[in-house]
Amino acid sequence: MTGSADPAAGPGPGGRPPTVVAVPAALREQLFTPAAWDRLRSVADVTVLEEHTDRDALAAVLPAARILVTAWGTARMDADLLAAAPHLELLAHTGGAVSPYADEEVFARGIRVTQAGAAMARSVAEVALAFTLALLHRVHRFDHALRGGADWDRAAAAPPRHEILGCPVGVIGASRTGRAYIALARALGARVSVHDPLLTEAEAAELGVRKAALADLLATSRIVAVHAPALPETHHLIGARELALLPDGAGLVNTARSWLVDEEALVAAVRTGRIDAALDVYDAEPLPAGHPLRGLPNVLLTPHQAAATVECRQALGDSTVDEIVRYVTGRPLRHTVDRTALARVE
């Protein structure tokens, strides 16, 4: 640990609030540029906790803390840890979903919670677009065939390829990432339909998309990109029945959560060769070495890295620091969440 861990309540040196940054060194360097770190230290008395998964280590540095910064793997703030943090006022998460890091007691105590998920939208949307183009042009099939030793003519054999210009693309979920993906796909000329029960006709018109029922969207889209939130009601939103609605040769893109797609049904569907898929998320992570998805030539796989660009990680850190600066200087926070965020599945 570095910085101040004075257990006395109240402001730190220069009136700066005691702030625990429970983020290990390697990730901290990715999230916080030198300028962002200097900005944080200018408004907060910072204690760094390297052992961010260790509940006892976290409890030891919480007695004076007014602000806690969490990251992937940070021990979850529950009643026991909150008992060690009598002065905590703000939990600032450097990622999106906060349910793994805060429980109901955090909100019951009136602690403000903010998260940086909006900063991930562009990076994940770009990967979803890259997946879309790869599936349309069957790049994954060609690569698999050539690397697998297929002769030239056999490697060149693939289902029909298509351009994105004029392509019917379906988007499930007009989330922040969904909207970023819509903008990118439409910029390249795609005709976009969206299924989202909360999307109004006016919002659809503003986005330049057609609002559609799920069955209609699936049956009329060459590419379907999943961007819905992982909520109890969206579990296995896409199952065997929904996959059967996709046209022959269609592709499914999932950079959101595996929670949304019945993975067993998807494996069965892509095994037939009738549809293709591009995935960044899985039921089991790391994806087991013997998992059937790994051997299918019509599936493009990445290891849950859609939000891991240099720019995205730094944007997450900048967003977190911005929220802390706003809090310390008495300005409204931009990315607060309430207890309903606990329903989201990480």
Rank of each mutant, 00 (worst) to 15 (best):
A157L: 11
P11W: 08
K211N: 12
G249A: 08
Y327P: 06
L146W: 12
D103M: 07
E126R: 10
H304L: 07
V310I: 11
V127D: 00
V113N: 02
V209P: 00
S175H: 04
S99R: 10
W37L: 14
P160G: 09
R161N: 13
F142N: 14
L246F: 06
N254R: 01
I223C: 02
S123K: 04
A240C: 12
T302I: 09
T132G: 07
R313Y: 13
R112T: 14
A8M: 15
T2F: 11
A83P: 11
A187R: 13
R39T: 02
P247H: 06
F142E: 15
G208K: 02
I172E: 03
A119C: 10
T94F: 00
V337C: 06
R222F: 06
Y282H: 12
T320W: 04
T70D: 05
T220W: 06
L237W: 02
L293V: 10
A9D: 03
V299Y: 09
V113E: 07
D262G: 06
A5N: 15
A9C: 08
E29T: 15
Y101V: 15
G14Q: 11
V21D: 05
V270D: 05
V20T: 00
D6Q: 10
N298C: 02
T329D: 07
V299E: 03
T272Y: 03
A185I: 04
A108E: 15
L214A: 09
G149F: 13
R28M: 12
E263W: 10
G10E: 13
H93S: 12
R222S: 11
V46W: 05
R210Y: 06
R112H: 13
N254Q: 02
F32P: 03
V194M: 05
E323M: 02
V325T: 09
A150R: 13
A57H: 01
S99P: 07
S258C: 12
C167D: 10
L49T: 05
V299C: 02
D276Y: 12
S319K: 12
D276F: 11
L316A: 06
L300E: 05
G249Y: 07
L342M: 03
V124C: 07
P292Q: 13
G96I: 01
A128E: 08
D103W: 06
T53C: 12
A308N: 15
